[in-house]
Write a protein that binds this DNA or RNA. Structure first.
Length: 895
RNA sequence: GGUCGCUUGGCUCAGUUGGUUAGAGCAUACGAUUCACAUUCGUAAGGUCGGUGGUUCGAGUCCACCAGCGACCACCA
């Protein structure tokens, strides 16, 4: 007898097993058995969404890794050449913000250190957290190819960024323009539209006139911006103001006299405020739009530091916006110009990284034109098409499938409303924009042309753009930039580089992109934009979106709330497999998932169940060995469990192929616990000599469970002593379908046993005490006779008689199944009243059921319109139920 | 304001294209302790599938409207 610990100890085996996997080399698809000479296996590729190079792994990462490793391991077992490429994202704004906070603890700012020293601190920090991330990704059991690990700031990836920028510049897709941008005064950088978040805040709505002789009262939440007003806009239909449209007034708010023109604009809501709004082109996107249409000037009164500028006048210059607001409000009050001040809820725009209030500002930035139609040689998508059009098309035409499908709508509406993408950031950490400016004439010089000097004036005084790229510009290239040859210097141009990158040719497009729905616009859409433009290929064929993780109350997990579950702590306590199962089972695509400790505990119990099922089988068989061929079934139970195993194998495969992870997991859970352990193993104890079948079933169970719970399955697999890893076994074949009546017959046996147990429990017969039972059946008699040993053992029956007829005796309880009656001798314990109540209740249920069926079958339209198989099934049910009902009535009559 | 989602037993959720008397797990009640597993075993109770109307032979499933909750998007100053 083998010695196997009674309970599974994940802590003792996980690290050891991960090491074996990693050292086997099979994480690298080039080493897989399917990848030999001359073979052309199907590919399966996932690019791991690179975690930010900040901080540590949270439960969201754990779930993403669980889903991805599930797909990766399944496809590897399916003998596909499977690659999962890991990496990290430099996450410029998030990382820089983090490091700024760290140095602030030392009383330092980035300016104290200077660009170079500051970046050294960032790199130092990033090195540390990347190591942490690597360790944590391993802890989850992720079977990713570490030999291909990349980082968005790698030399090769940076080169891709530079070349893509240059390509876009030359195609006229990138331009530099002075436009209103979202400015974060804390980060001192621009933000893309979708990097701005909105917060409900209490605000004050001020109603006032600029000065006494001004005819219109305006309302605003930000009076300090009124120093930059150049117009008042009203709705052209508004009778109150019609007469003023086109007139010009001179005002002076303390920063010199300037003109205010009354303009008409249809977007003005007559019912809101006073129906008139002060137009501040420099500090509002909408106002900027109006100013452009009406050819009005721009007065910038707020600067990049979030303080009032010189243009705001000497009374205001240098004040913060809040100070200026108070001051100008006081001015209006003192002058008797303020008509009303009211508290209103308002939507405040804040930075998604540091939460500081956003200032819209006019600024000279780089933009990607999403509407310009271009034609690109050799690119099947870009034939007189814009980026926007292609982004829509690849999803509309199904080249990229989004799961769940409803998110396609979200995607479309996001793309349709997309405005030009501002890609320059005034951050220090990130890819520098590969452009210089001529100090002499201001001309733009691409980095690659710098040697030749300025193309306009031939000047050689060039100054590199100090800005960096939006972090999503580089992560947009992630699926392909990570696969390009690292030795890029030897290629003359981008096309040559692409053509000589074997991994790119072999593994791109990737099969599935798995990520949270929250970054569909941020990242997914930008990858589609980038990849279709650069390669003329989609980046991935499927997008699987998972939901957000929430706590037991449904709140989003966050550090500040302190309600987050630490995956490492859970792994330490319950094991990685338990954590993975708790994240997979019960989660459906695109829907949020509540996670809490009891759930993880449930799956720890399941993993232990698997362990003990295996332990029992491995300790009880004579020789532990693989069983290739389906063993011969000697009994009904054998036939049943073999058939169930086949069903399990094909159902799990079908569910996984269709991204129904939870359903697949649940079925394995049910098979293991409710079929194999609760019934078959118990029966095996009676029937005996089932070594082959037990091993055959166990081997297959381990394989199908492996993608969900890799560690425990791999550990048990060692007992087969094959010298091979479970990780690279073949997904089992399904041999034969279960015979039609096997399942039904086995169900009858189960029902008989449950019926006996039920009576025992109801009459509180001690489990130890054996009872006498008579089973009566005509058509099922042979079946039951063949199963008497099982029924006796599992029902704890001492004396079992199977008969075609039997007259009920005193002191016996009865249970009526369809076609079978069970009598249990209670030696006088029987409670006639209870018996009667039970039978009456059942009679009531059956009578209702029968009459419904009769009504249904008596309905002519049902009989003529419903398909035959449905009608047949209903007829079968009816006759069976009527028979059962008759038996019950007979019993009741005798009482 | 727009878009999307959710609402199924006390809790967490399944329920693929409409077709058995709607399923799990947790929790509950009763009973069991050396026999693979108390991280266990047996038995039971618990649901008019948010509401109303419609399509259909047949609706948890499709349609319309309503209610409650939530998410995302949006330049109401």
């Amino acid at each position: 007898m083998r010695e196997i610990p009674k309970a599974y100890q994940p802590q003792e085996v996980e690290d050891k097993i991960y090491k074996e996997w990693e050292e086997s080399g099979f994480f690298n698809p080039d080493n897989l058995p399917c990848a030999g000479e001359g073979k052309t296996p199907e590919k399966f590729v996932i690019s791991m969404p690179p975690p930010n190079a900040t901080g540590i792994l949270h439960l969201g990462h754990a779930s993403m890794l669980a889903y991805q490793d599930l797909m990766v391991r399944f496809n590897r077992l399916e003998q596909k050449q499977t690659m999962w490429l890991p990496g990290t994202d430099h996450a410029s704004i998030a990382t820089q913000t983090k490091v700024e906070k760290n140095i602030a603890k030392e009383g330092l700012t980035k300016y104290d250190l200077g660009r170079e020293k500051f970046l050294e601190r960032v790199h130092e920090y990033v090195e540390g957290s990347r190591d942490t991330i690597r360790e944590q990704v391993r802890k989850m059991g992720s079977s990713c190819d570490w030999s291909r690990e990349r980082y968005t700031l790698d030399e090769g990836l940076s080169e891709v960024v530079r070349q893509v920028f240059t390509m876009m510049y030359e195609d006229g897709l990138i331009y530099r323009g002075n436009r209103i941008v979202n400015w974060c005064p804390r980060c001192e950088s621009t933000l893309a539209d979708d990097e701005v978040e909105h917060e409900e805040k209490e605000g004050k709505f001020y109603y006032f006139k600029y000065q006494k002789d001004f005819p219109i009262t305006i309302a605003t939440t930000r009076p300090e911006t009124k120093l930059g007003d150049v117009a008042v806009a009203v709705n052209p239909k508004d009778d109150r103001y019609k007469e003023f449209i086109g007139k010009t007034y001179k005002i002076d708010l303390g920063n010199g006299e300037h003109e205010i023109r009354i303009i008409a604009d249809w977007t003005v809501d007559m019912a809101f405020g006073t129906g008139a709004l002060g137009v501040t082109p420099a500090h509002s996107m909408a106002d900027f739009q109006m100013a452009t249409e009406n050819d009005l000037p721009t007065i910038k009164v707020i600067g990049e530091d979030g303080k009032m500028t010189a243009e705001a006048g000497k009374d205001y210059e240098g004040l913060t916006t809040l100070e200026a607001r108070e001051k100008i409000a006081k001015h209006f009050r003192d002058q008797g110009l303020m008509e009303k001040e009211e508290e209103v809820p308002q939507n405040l725009s804040v930075c998604y990284r540091c939460n500081a209030a956003i200032e819209p500002l006019p600024s000279l930035q780089w933009f990607i034109d999403v509407n310009k139609k271009i034609t690109k040689d050799g690119n099947k998508y870009f034939q007189d098409k814009s980026l926007k059009e292609v982004m829509l098309r690849v999803v509309q035409e199904g080249e990229i499938k989004i799961i769940p499908e409803r998110f396609e709508k979200t995607y479309f509406s996001w793309v349709e409303n997309l405005r030009d993408w501002c890609v320059s950031r005034q951050l220090w950490f990130g890819h520098r924009i590969p452009v210089s400016y001529c100090e002499d004439c201001g001309g733009v010089v691409l980095q690659k042309d710098e040697a030749a000097g300025c193309s306009k004036c031939q000047g050689s005084h060039l100054r590199q753009d100090s800005d960096t790229f939006d972090t999503w510009f580089s992560s947009g290239a992630w699926t392909f930039s990570t696969l390009m040859d690292k030795d890029f210097a030897k290629y003359a141009n981008f096309d040559e580089w692409v053509e000589n990158s074997p991994d790119l040719l072999k593994y791109h497009p990737t099969s599935v992109l798995e990520t949270g729905y929250d970054i569909l616009p941020f990242w997914v859409a930008r990858m589609i934009l980038m990849t279709t433009y650069v390669l003329g290929e989609v980046p991935f064929e499927n997008v699987y979106l998972h939901g957000m993780l929430r706590d037991k109350e449904g709140k989003k997990m966050s550090k500040s709330l302190g309600n987050g579950i630490d995956p490492l702590e859970m792994i330490e306590k319950y094991g990685t497999d338990a954590l993975r199962l708790s994240l997979i089972i019960g989660s459906t695509p695109g829907n949020d998932l509540k996670v809490y400790e009891e759930k993880i505990e449930t799956y720890r119990n399941f993993v232990n169940k698997v362990w003990n099922v295996s332990r029992y089988i491995l300790m009880s068989v004579e020789n532990v060995q693989r069983v290739e061929m389906r063993p011969e079934a000697k009994t009904l139970a054998d036939e049943w469990i073999l058939g169930e195993t086949d069903h399990l194998i094909s159902d799990v495969k079908d569910n996984l192929e269709n991204f129904r992870f939870s359903a697949a997991g649940e079925e394995i859970y049910d098979f293991t616990w409710s079929k194999l352990a609760d019934w078959y193993l118990e029966i095996a104890k009676v029937e005996g000599s089932k070594d082959e079948i037990l091993l055959y079933v166990l081997e297959r169970l381990l394989i199908v469970l492996h993608p969900f719970a890799p560690y425990v399955t791999e550990e048990i697999w060692k007992d087969f002593e094959t010298g091979e890893l479970l990780m690279v076994q073949k997904w089992p074949e399904t041999v034969a379908l279960q015979k039609e009546d096997t399942k039904a017959n086995f169900e009858i046996v189960k029902d008989i046993i449950t019926g006996i147990r039920n009576i025992r429990a109801e009459y509180k017969i001690e489990p130890k005490k054996k009872v006498k039972v008579v089973i009566v059946s005509v058509e099922k008699k042979d079946l039951i006779v063949a199963q008497v040993e099982i029924i006796k053992f599992l029902g704890r029956v001492e004396d079992l008689e199977v008969a075609e007829t039997f007259a009920k005796k005193e002191g016996m309880a009865v249970a009526v199944l369809s076609g079978v009656e069970i009598y249990v001798s209670l030696e006088g314990l029987v409670d006639m009243e209870k018996e009667k109540q039970n039978l009456l209740k059942e009679k009531q249920n059956l009578t209702a059921f029968v009459s419904n069926l009769q009504k249904k079958l008596g309905n002519e339209t049902f009989v003529s319109k419903a398909p035959d198989n449905i009608i047949e099934a209903e007829k079968g049910k009816l006759s069976e139920s009527m028979e059962k009902l008759a038996k019950i009535e007979e019993k009741l009559g005798a009482m």
